[in-house]
Amino acid sequence: MICNQKSALTTVATAAQTVTANGFVSFPTNNLLTGVSIKHPAGSTSVNLIQGLYLVTLNADITPTAAGDIGLNLIRNGVAVPGAEATVTGATGDTYNISFATLLRVLPSCCVIDNNAALQVQATAAGTISNVSLSVIKMA
């Protein structure tokens, strides 16, 4: 019997997906989804978090459509999370592995303030994303 299991999510997209500049990565498969503080319908681009401290990690292969900078950013409620990004200067057709990790605090909500966090992974330039894994663990 598993009791009081912390909320955790690992969601993946192993198949290649083409993403436009400023487009969001979709995650079709939830390998693990436990607890009640993290919500992610398989196939969605958004992960929803309620009150707590979370560790968020991302690992992905990225192939730029054109030479130049390309990367992935973590977006929280429509705003880029400082430091939660990975960028490479790439050549057209070459594949690069990128990753980042960050801690996020989600404050409690009340009847007049909704502090829940909606997270998305956004591409900074057009490219193909594959073998992407996003993990979110509620620490406290």
Results as ranks from 00 to 15, higher is better:
34 T>H: 04
42 A>I: 10
115 N>L: 03
90 G>N: 07
110 C>R: 11
68 G>K: 10
78 G>F: 06
106 V>S: 12
72 L>D: 03
75 I>Q: 00
133 S>K: 06
93 G>K: 07
105 R>G: 13
88 V>I: 15
133 S>P: 02
9 L>N: 07
76 R>W: 07
26 S>W: 02
14 T>R: 02
97 N>I: 12
53 L>P: 01
137 I>K: 00
22 N>W: 08
128 T>D: 05
25 V>D: 03
136 V>P: 01
39 K>H: 12
39 K>C: 06
28 P>E: 13
85 E>A: 11
59 N>R: 08
32 L>A: 09
32 L>T: 13
109 S>N: 08
1 M>N: 05
40 H>M: 11
24 F>A: 04
113 I>S: 14
95 T>V: 12
21 A>D: 12
70 I>E: 00
82 P>W: 06
125 A>Q: 11
136 V>A: 09
117 A>M: 11
59 N>K: 09
120 Q>P: 00
115 N>Q: 14
69 D>W: 07
55 L>R: 11
85 E>H: 01
52 G>H: 09
44 S>G: 14
117 A>F: 08
55 L>C: 06
134 L>H: 03
24 F>R: 02
133 S>F: 03
84 A>M: 06
113 I>P: 04
90 G>Y: 02
35 G>A: 05
6 K>Y: 05
40 H>L: 09
30 N>I: 06
137 I>G: 00
94 D>W: 04
126 A>H: 03
35 G>D: 00
9 L>E: 07
12 V>T: 05
33 L>Y: 00
66 A>K: 13
79 V>K: 06
55 L>K: 10
18 T>S: 15
39 K>N: 15
129 I>M: 04
112 V>D: 12
3 C>K: 09
17 Q>W: 06
18 T>P: 05
36 V>W: 03
62 I>D: 04
47 V>D: 01
132 V>P: 00
39 K>D: 13
87 T>V: 15
83 G>S: 09
31 N>G: 07
73 N>Y: 06
86 A>F: 08
135 S>L: 03
